[in-house]
């Protein structure tokens, strides 16, 4: 294993948690559909994507755990941290208001994670590059799935178009956190461990904008405020409820193994 100094280990811990939390919270949201999707085929498809996401989270939590000064396991990190310690982008915790919200949230996420994992897979730190490469294969398929649904909902019926437009309008302000290039990320970037994610915004737009246009969706004006704070533990009200549900057993029975 690569040797990192204490400062770098702390930065890496937080950085990897950000990825793991993004994938877990998104996967959890998708799993809420199980049994309630618009058609059985889609139930299966969404469960598949959820399983990919949670599997990726598991891999990144395991790696993060190797940097944890408190010696927590992957499960401890997922099930015993409070919402203010979660580092996911706020987009991933947004609720499944309807299928259009789920698809828009997914598409915006996939459009970031495809180029992101492409870059992460090139990390000089092998332990980080490997799960990145594995996840890349999965998110490529996720993007294909969400893109196709954006087209169908946008260019489907009047109702589907207006529902998707509503979802896009509501979620647009949550689409910039992925590209925040904080000082701590910058330090890791300079060590050639992580990509410059601010540079991925252009790629994201290249993926997202033409598809929305083809889907007859009006691209929202950039608002004066883009949501921020998730990477530092500041979230929307939704995350607390999600975690209360997700963490109930390990929290209620702290001495139990499952």
């Amino acid at each position: 294993m690569a040797e990192f100094d204490v400062k770098t280990r702390e930065l890496l811990f937080n950085y990897i948690l950000g990825i793991a939390d993004d994938r877990l919270i998104l996967g959890h949201r998708l799993s809420e559909w199980c049994g309630h999707a618009p058609i059985i085929e889609e139930d299966i498809a969404m469960a598949n994507i959820a399983l990919d996401c949670i599997g990726e989270a598991d891999a990144f939590y395991k790696l993060a755990a190797t940097f944890d000064t408190e010696g927590r396991s992957a499960d401890d990190l997922a099930f015993l941290r409070d919402s203010t310690e979660f580092r996911n982008v706020q987009l991933s915790e947004q609720p499944n208001t309807d299928f259009a919200w789920t698809i828009a949230r997914q598409f915006f996420t996939d459009a970031f994670y495809v180029p992101f994992f492409e870059e992460l897979a090139k990390s000089s730190y092998e332990e980080l590059a490997a799960p990145g490469a594995k996840a890349l294969k999965e998110v490529k398929y996720h993007l294909r799935h969400s893109r196709e649904w954006i087209l169908r909902l946008g260019d489907g019926t009047e109702e589907s178009n207006s529902r998707l437009q509503d979802a896009v309008d509501n979620l647009w302000m949550y689409t910039r956190e992925f590209f925040e290039f904080s000082d701590s990320v910058k330090l890791l970037y300079e060590l050639d461990i992580v990509p410059d994610n601010s540079a991925l915004l252009e790629k994201w737009k290249e993926t997202v904008l033409p598809v929305l246009k083809d889907a007859l969706i009006t691209i929202p004006e950039d608002p004066p405020y883009f949501a921020t704070g998730g990477r530092n533990g500041l979230h929307t009200e939704h995350l607390g409820h999600l975690l209360a549900e997700m963490q109930v057993l390990p929290r209620t029975y702290p001495d139990a193994k499952w």
Partner: peptide, 22 residues
């Protein structure tokens, strides 16, 4: 599914319920 007590159980349960859809 949303209350499974660890990641392994969560994935196994989700995969199982997904199988039922299949």
């Amino acid at each position: 599914i949303t209350r499974a007590p660890n990641l392994r159980r969560k994935m196994a349960l989700l995969a199982k319920v997904q199988d039922e859809a299949g």
